[in-house]
Design a protein around this nucleic acid. Structure first.
Lengths: 224, 224, 224, 224
DNA sequence: CATGAATGAGACTTCATTCAT
DNA sequence: AATGAATGAAGTCTCATTCAT
């Protein structure tokens, strides 16, 4: 498979950034791994930072698209949450394990990088928060601050994914991780169940349960 | 308040590492902020990496102690989970906002640092995993893989804390973040409730609910 | 005459090491004298030590080749000894006075340098010792320990050459030094002469004198 | 044996300078080995260079005194030459092997040190040269340039001594080195022997031989 | 387009020396 | 006199970036 020079550079850089970090990996490292000359890199990217940004932008974009695609299928909220978590996990795996980690460099070390990455995180976060908020409104997600919930969700996902990719006992985690994660995520978000029979059930919860029950039909109807 | 030179160095370094990252912050930066000479630092630490490690070790230690202290009070599992999450959050806040972030540099950029930090993370994680596992055995936490759950829990906590400290809308998050976080954490972990009246309830869940009900008394009795 | 960058670096470094010593001369000194940037040096040599080693290896190599070339001409032992001493002297002079001095830094100041330089000295020394030993066997050199003799010979040569190049009264020494040195060297090594008429003459000495007398013919006739 | 602080410093420094060189050995090294504080050294010596100079001056002084003492015994020239060489060798050995090596740091690396050491070498050299010259005048040493001869003599002595102390096969060299060296030195300097019976003998050589024969009496009679 | 030699600013670290105690 | 913490100048080496070929 022949890749464009640019693609080779990006892939190599992504692997190296993930493995060794932005500062620890040198342009020569990238050039060597991509089998190009140092100078060639500068035909495609004006600077090392820009390579980093290209990668991060692309990765965040991919993730958003993935979730968006799922959402357009009009799944139940539970399905959406579980699917999103699992998709993100699988993506990391399929894409090559390494590049994924880029997303875990939480605090890029230069002002420009930090600023931009924070923006991207914020966008993804807002997207997820919006999904959650709409779930809350529909009663299919328990009442909570959408932003906090989204942050927690992403954090939880990154942590488990990261550990699966880089930590010990990876193999086991690669297998059972996604399901476990999806369950935790849904537990954290789902409305209290136990319909009318529970004395302590609040009104909000009651209607929530009702909404959940009807959700499937809604989805069915609205999908077209 | 007079601080020892070493303490001044550590605090300055922590602040700077958190703010700018390990590589972006120079020894001169640290020296300047700590108002000491460059050379002085080397009386206390053999290298920049060692400053970093000193900070990280201390911070992880603090966190473990904090949780351990709470555990010795024999709280209910819910109380323990909520308290742990909240304590970690508050610690970050009280301690000065900056140092906390050190824990968020997930992938330190040199082999030595990465290795050691991963070990420390692993220890904290195992500690939390053990707590979860014992909860699962007692039935006060729903059945799950303790390691995955611990990873998710910590990831969620770090994400929200990090955002509260560094992200937008910090003030609001500083206020309501801990509670929200604690609730999410407990939702993710607690056993399914809704006792006998729920038809779908498994045996495990039933005994779990029972255990939860009795927990408070246990704690009260067993404390001596 | 255009020189390669590498050659310019080596020559400058050699001059500076000789003039100021390994530690006193900085990379910037070398770069400045060679009219290159500091960084450029590192394209050719991985470290300052490696520049030093490159120089020393080359110089030792040159000297051995020089002597070897003379030896292949099948000279008499006296001719070989005198020629070797004089050649070494002239080489130093022709080559630019400075580089020669490198050989006089007897105790390079880092373990690695010391070790390697001692090895090189040892090789040259063994080479000379072998020549002496074969002379002793042939009776054209008086009976002595070849290693001690070689050490002394080299030491004497270096001392006089060094003084000629660096000390006071250099001009005079540059002129008459080689001859004087060659004579001393030969005096120190030659077998006792004064054949049979000396009462004290030993058998060994007698045959030695005889061997010396015949040597020329041997050389003339052939390789044996 | 209690030594004065100053003496401890000098001895430690000498050992370290010899072993590792001037620049490679730090004040802290010296302080540590001498079991004093860094600051204490500065009560006795204004700088590192001055420690070095103190050592070198003392060592050169010792050597000159040693030879001078022998000279005052009115030995034959041969005896004087052999004794001097052997004494210098033994001194190095007795004194502790290490400090001796100071003399082998031929090119001290700072201008001030180099200048002073060259002066000291020059003095020793002149002293030896004077001895040789007087031998030449008396006919007990063959006709040669006294300065070159002295330089060669010292160089030869240093080389063999240095190798005995630091090189391979040290034990053997420690034993037989002095004698071998003394013999080489005398061979290099002595007048051609074999009196009138040798046809090739020059006039100078003849009178030289005669002078050698009478030397003992001369010495007995007086200083002139 | 591509190369890789060359640049030079700047990083970490060392260490002779000082000085308050 | 003695200590050793503190200083800060200076050294080696790295590496993103440029540019002639």
């Amino acid at each position: 498979m022949k890749q464009s020079l640019e693609e080779k550079i990006v892939r190599s850089a992504a692997k190296l950034f993930a493995r060794k970090g932005f500062h620890t990996c040198t342009m020569r490292d990238i050039a060597t791994m991509a089998r190009v000359s140092t100078g060639a890199i500068y035909h495609y990217f004006p600077s090392k930072e820009d390579i980093y940004l290209a990668i991060v932008r692309r990765e965040y974009g991919r993730r958003k698209e993935m979730i968006e695609a799922k959402r357009l299928e009009n799944p139940t909220t539970e399905d959406l949450v579980r699917s999103a978590v699992i998709l993100l996990f699988k993506m990391a795996e399929e894409y090559g394990r390494a590049e994924q980690l880029v997303l875990h460099l939480r605090v890029p070390e230069t002002p420009r990088l930090r600023k931009e990455v924070q923006q991207l995180r914020e966008q993804l976060l807002q997207y997820v928060a919006d999904l959650i908020e709409s779930g809350v409104r529909k009663g299919t997600i328990r009442s909570c601050d959408p932003t906090v919930a989204a942050t927690a969700l992403i954090g939880m996902g990154e942590a488990v994914t990261g550990r699966a990719l880089a930590g010990p006992a990876s193999e086991y985690l690669m297998q059972s991780g996604p399901e476990q994660l999806a369950t935790m995520a849904w537990q954290a978000l789902r409305p209290d169940r136990c319909g009318g029979s529970c004395a302590a059930t609040t009104n909000a919860e009651t209607s929530a349960a009702a909404a959940a029950a009807e959700e499937k039909d809604d989805a069915g109807r609205g999908g077209s």
